[in-house]
Write a protein that binds this DNA or RNA. Structure first.
Length: 885
RNA sequence: GCGGGCGUGAUGGAAUGGUAGACAUAGGGGACUUAAAAUCCCUAGGGCAUGGCCCGUGCGGGUUCGAGUCCCGCCGCCCGCACCA
């Protein structure tokens, strides 16, 4: 009798699928089409177990859709431009392209072992000139449609390395390599006009019924539509005005200062003859560009000495501050501060001893006025409040009503205008780096910015570059940079900025519909395969990637590359959780350090033996354990560990966290597949947690999954060899139909963990069944089929063992017979005052009054009643009875 | 700081407002074995005066016949914050 041997069967079935070509996407007008896509990976070099989970989920969907008669498109490619390739180039003297393609080869081999339903004939990498050339063609289209433009914007500038840094390359305000304090520097950069679509990107969210609400909420807040008042403050002793925008004009009588951004034109003008202000502004600019950094920084201001005149009272003047927390990018770059109703303004007012005037208070009850030491009063705009300083409207009104009234007043009196603004800024796509898609324009002294001719695309990256000198290699590559102007032929230079890698990932889904096309898409193929029916990826992409893709789909429609129906490219979205793992570390607490100078040393999971002792997670180094052997040494060691000492052998176990190379809490999928097989890895990552939540990788869990698959193998053998006749055929078949129903629902609703739990239960039932062979084989075949989206190789093998026809991969999905799902009798719990006290078996459709009578007759109810009459009896037919006493 | 999410036994988790803890892991007990592995069976939220009762879904309130689920306020953790992908 053969045993379950994943190592032998997995390659066999992978080959069989490939030979049968079952996963090649084919247009078929007799079937509904289904496009399932997982976010494509960055080719870092190795598949991560998190990838395995992501792709296993997509594969479950793809296999289920294949089995339910769909023409499935399930492609894969590589998000291959980006910083890590340049870092590798600098550190290891390899060409970013060579490094990237070598990584792709390696990862593709790892992919192959997972048994996924991917159609590799459509594979591409975003760094392929065939791909980015089409991206350049679209850029030129966008230029013609005025969807791209140039303007100044700030970047993180490293004055030592003379290079632009990404936000992640700035650590505590310093460049990660040079350690130099970064500065904000203005450069002319390219922008996509995503803000033109702000309103549409917002309102169209309502049509995305199969997107998680949390993602839609995040996008809504990110786009940040607000209606507010824009008005100018006049200045004492000056002719110019400060234009401000506020979403709370109802609090105008609580104003205590006017604040402008350090990048505001007035701030720049004033610093010319005010060295102190210049120093303050310079200080503010010595900070990264990340919004988080600005917001967390201490609120600081500089009193310009200017006085702004309050629009409602010419006698009332407000000091004008330059303040570090005001962004030039949002609104007008100037605000008025109302400390009583804004936390930031309050912090600022307390610091600079500015007046704090409340303008409204709660309708009921007192409120600790922030005039004293209270919190700012910021109720929702829908809440009724009582105004103590009324700009317009009733004394008692909601914030929303008061805002509208204040805008109406300002417009009627002519000193302000109601304005709708969006938080969403245009998408800056310029990157001063080599390893990205070149922006296909040429700068000519006479013609200005000229797009490259489409027949000259792709503008390919030059190969002969080096990273020995800081800065962008494209900028110092004369033969690449210096070209004739496409318009006049005079000497000109290429744009040396490349595109943000978000551009690459904003349209790859569309390219998959016709990866070889000589235009960005083949409209016919795109309209057949689009939209993506199910998109799967990490929630970390909830805003930027998905918003940019939604913009791109619209822009591509403008350019004729996508049909109008694909403006929202992803019909359904699922955001899956991460795979986490315990961390094993020795942490030194005294002055000592480890030999390399580190204070914490992390160990790979494969280097330690973790165990639970008296409820405490501890671990020992595997190497030390081998030295010590078993027996007394280990007992002594365990005792030491319990005293919570760091010993040479003992390793602390830190609770599970996101896998990261620096913490070394990673598991290598290849190692797992070598040990257990791909089916075990797939089964486990899907089994233990809901897909949208994180799952903790544990060795014990993986082993258990592996054991279960071996057990299913034995169960199938048992079914095949069962006696001709037995008992309980009907019961087993009933369970089979119930399992079919539940697992099908589980898969359709992304409840993979629940579906797997149900499969465990069904396997247990089958194992215990004494039914005859026909029923057992039917049940075992169904079990194999229901498992096949998760464990495709094992399922093929069992299918063959049980005499199934053809490949299970192409066999039609089992259907549950509704007649087999209904029970004639149900168990009804009986509650007394909402607490379960008893239960009873009753016919499913027993009339209410009879159910009530049965329940009241129960011993437990009689005991509780103790002769009294119940106040009320609630009967929910088929569900529950509650007797209220 | 701002925006979003999550919190249930020792552990991962299950539960259209209707029996909290399905299914699994670790644990305890047993069978088989010279022994171990593998396999199979039983047990298992906590407590007590144990044929029964009380407590229990991060904490504090509320709505309801009934709340893990809905509402309000807190605490903790995770994700995003526009140049990481």
């Amino acid at each position: 009798m053969a045993r379950y041997d994943a190592g032998a069967i997995e390659p066999k079935w992978q080959k069989a699928w490939e030979e049968a070509g079952c996963f090649t996407a084919r247009r078929d007008d007799t079937k509904p089409k289904y496009y399932v896509l997982e976010m494509f990976p960055y080719p870092s070099g190795n598949l991560h177990i998190g990838h395995v989970r992501n792709y296993a989920m997509g594969d479950v969907v793809a296999r289920y859709k294949l089995a339910t008669g769909h023409a499935v498109l399930h492609p894969m490619g590589w998000d291959a431009f980006g910083l890590p390739a340049e870092n590798a180039a600098m550190e290891r003297k390899v060409h970013p392209g060579d490094w990237t393609y070598a990584n792709i080869d390696n990862m593709k081999a790892q992919f192959a072992r997972l048994g996924l339903t991917l159609d590799w004939s459509r594979e591409f990498a975003t760094c392929d000139p065939e791909y980015y050339g089409q991206q350049q063609a679209m850029f030129i289209d966008f230029l013609e449609k005025d969807l791209v433009y140039r303007k100044n914007a700030v970047v993180n500038w490293d004055p030592v390395d003379m290079t632009v840094l990404a936000n992640e390359q700035v650590e505590d305000g310093r460049g990660w390599r040079s350690g130099a304090l970064v500065e904000r520097r203005e450069l002319t950069q390219w922008f996509f006009r995503i803000s033109t679509y702000s309103d549409e990107l917002l309102s169209a969210l309502d049509t995305l019924d199969n997107w998680p609400d949390k993602v839609k909420t995040m996008q809504k807040n990110w786009i940040g539509k607000s209606r507010g008042l824009q008005f100018p403050f006049g200045l004492k002793d000056r002719d110019d005005l400060i234009e401000v925008y506020t979403t709370r004009p109802d609090t105008l009588l609580g104003a205590s200062f006017v604040g402008i951004s350090p990048d505001h034109p007035l701030a720049k003008e004033l610093e010319a003859d005010n060295p102190e202000l210049a120093a303050f502004n310079a200080e503010c600019r010595k900070m990264g560009t990340a919004e988080e950094e600005l917001e967390k920084a201490e609120k600081r201001g500089f009193d310009t000495g200017l006085q702004a005149v309050h629009p409602l009272d010419p006698q009332w003047t407000l000091p004008v501050f330059v303040a570090n927390f005001i962004l030039m990018e949002y609104g007008t770059g100037a605000i008025f501060g109302c400390p009583a109703h804004d936390a930031r303004d309050l912090e600022f007012a307390r610091k600079y001893d500015l007046p704090i005037k409340s303008t409204f208070v709660p309708v009921n009850g007192p409120h600790t006025a922030p005039e004293d030491q209270g919190e700012p009063f910021v109720p929702p705009k829908t809440e009724l409040v009582r105004y103590t300083r009324i700009v317009a409207g009733d004394a008692e009104q909601t914030g929303g009503a008061a805002i509208d009234a204040a805008i109406d007043r300002a417009e009627a009196e002519g000193w302000g205008t109601g304005v709708t603004k969006f938080r969403l800024r245009d998408w800056g796509l310029s990157r001063q780096r080599y390893w990205g898609c070149p922006i296909p324009v040429v700068h000519c002294d006479t013609c200005g910015v000229v797009p490259e001719k489409k027949e000259n695309l792709p503008v390919e990256l030059p190969r002969d570059i080096d990273f020995d000198t800081p800065g962008n290699p494209l900028g110092r590559h004369p033969t690449w940079r210096d070209v004739p102007c496409p318009k006049c032929g005079a000497a000109a230079t290429r744009e040396t900025d490349t595109m943000d890698t978000f551009v690459d990932s904003s349209w790859y889904y569309a390219r998959f519909t016709s990866p070889g096309a000589t235009t960005p898409t083949d409209p016919d193929e795109a309209s057949y395969w689009m939209n993506v029916d199910q998109y799967i990826g990490g929630v970390e992409h909830a805003i930027l990637h998905l918003l940019y893709s939604r913009f791109f789909a619209r822009a591509m429609h403008e350019g004729g590359h996508l049909p109008a129906s694909a403006k929202e490219p992803f019909d359904a979205l699922f955001t899956q959780g991460m795979v986490t793992h315990e961390i094993y570390a020795n942490q030194l607490v005294g002055p000592e350090v480890f030999p390399q100078g580190e204070r914490v040393r992390y160990y790979l999971p494969s280097d330690v033996v973790p165990f639970t002792k008296d409820g405490k997670r501890v671990a020992v180094l595997r190497s030390r354990l081998n030295e010590a052997g078993r027996g007394e040494d280990q007992l002594a060691l365990e005792d030491q560990l319990l005293e919570d000492q760091d010993t040479e052998w003992g390793v602390r176990v830190i609770p599970s966290a996101k896998m990261s190379k620096s913490k070394r809490n990673v598991v290598d999928p290849v190692e797992i597949i070598d040990r257990f097989g791909a089916d075990t890895a797939r089964w486990f990552v899907l089994s233990d947690s809901p897909p949208e939540r994180d799952v903790e990788w544990t060795d014990a869990g993986a082993e258990a999954a592996s054991k279960h698959l071996a057990r299913v193998w034995r169960i199938a053998e048992g079914a095949r060899d069962a006696p001709e006749t037995g008992q309980g055929d009907e019961d087993l078949l009933r369970e089979m139909h119930k399992a079919t129903h539940d697992v099908t629902m589980g898969i359709e609703s992304f409840g993979f963990n629940a579906a797997i739990a149900r499969l465990y239960a069904f396997a247990n039932t089958l194992q215990k069944s004494k039914a005859g062979r026909t029923a057992q084989v039917a049940a075992a075949r169904t079990l194999a089929q229901l498992m096949s989206p998760m464990t495709p190789h094992l399922s093929e093998e069992l299918w063959q063992m049980l005499g199934g026809e053809g490949l299970i991969a192409t066999a039609p999905w089992p259907k549950a017979d509704p007649a087999m799902l209904v029970e004639d009798e149900v168990t009804m719990p009986i509650q007394v005052n909402g607490k379960r006290r008893d239960e009873m078996r009753v016919p499913r459709d027993m009339p209410k009054d009879q159910v009530e009578a049965r329940a009241l007759a129960s011993d437990a109810v009689q005991r509780s009643l103790n002769g009294a009459t119940p106040k009320k009896v609630i009967v929910v037919p088929g569900k529950i009875v509650n007797v209220v006493i």
